[in-house]
Design a binder for these strands. Structure first.
Lengths: 138, 138
DNA sequence: CGGTATCCATTTGGATACTG
DNA sequence: CAGTATCCAAATGGATACCG
């Protein structure tokens, strides 16, 4: 099976399944952070990932652990310490995620701009229309 | 500003914003399909993307159009024909998306496997535990 | 510190019916 | 063909309180 073959319509369900996990915002953030920093504690991650709630971070980490992308190490101390890092599999995901991250950094402004233009157009055409539904059943 | 600099904590909100759009399943699928096939009609996309509803495909395409990633061309015929393709900006997203797609194809099985193992462990430890809550308020 | 449990508002998205 | 509109069930996720 050649490598180029991945461009076929097949694997659509695999992609779909994978995306359900790593396609979500928090997962990408966690992998990104762990990729850069190697090992992080729960609250370190929480502080670094802007806006994540404790609940969501916990869920995200559990799912990543379940999928074999992240390891969780508990140190039985008081107060407890739990450290997270990427597995070997998780590290291979770093490349694709980084690419996405870089793309975001490079093109975020273009997107924001495109949105503004699109919205202006919508407003303009909406205003140009002769008031759509009024008078119905009058 | 050097390219390596994107590895800083900054751009977290840009990434977050971008992920809200392209991090969702259907968007990735649409960009993937349009990237491969160049130009596609609405129902062609619908048939190629397994499981997408008409509603979701419409919403996804509108959002991608709004973000400047996809163009929408209407041909005033009967029956109507509407064609979608990637913009230049959209094409630059192809690289990152392809990388993710290839990664999915390569590692899907490893993930499924990891899940199975994780779930087995959970079941095992659950069974090993001495019945957690019972007798409370007895 | 690193969680879990519960509640509840909001969002999401499929199903269905209708339209130019 | 390519949508739009509406309804409604289910999933999502924040807030809060409590625990080892």
């Amino acid at each position: 099976m050649s490598l180029q073959d991945t461009s076929q319509v097949s694997n659509c369900s695999a992609m779909s399944d994978v995306l359900n996990r790593i396609g979500d915002k928090w997962s990408v953030m966690v992998v990104g952070m762990l990729g850069r920093n190697g090992t992080l504690r729960f609250n370190e991650l929480k502080r670094m990932i802007n806006g994540v709630s404790q609940r969501m971070l916990t869920l995200t980490l559990r799912n990543l652990e379940r999928d074999g992308l992240v390891t969780r190490t508990i140190y039985p101390e008081v107060p407890p310490r739990v450290e997270y890092s990427l597995t070997e599999l998780g590290k291979t995901l770093q490349g694709p995620i980084s690419a996405l991250w870089d793309w975001s950094a490079e093109n975020h402004f273009a997107i924001v701009e495109a949105r503004a233009i699109y919205d202006l157009r919508q407003d303009a055409t909406a205003a140009a229309e002769p008031r759509k539904i009024a008078y119905a059943r009058g």
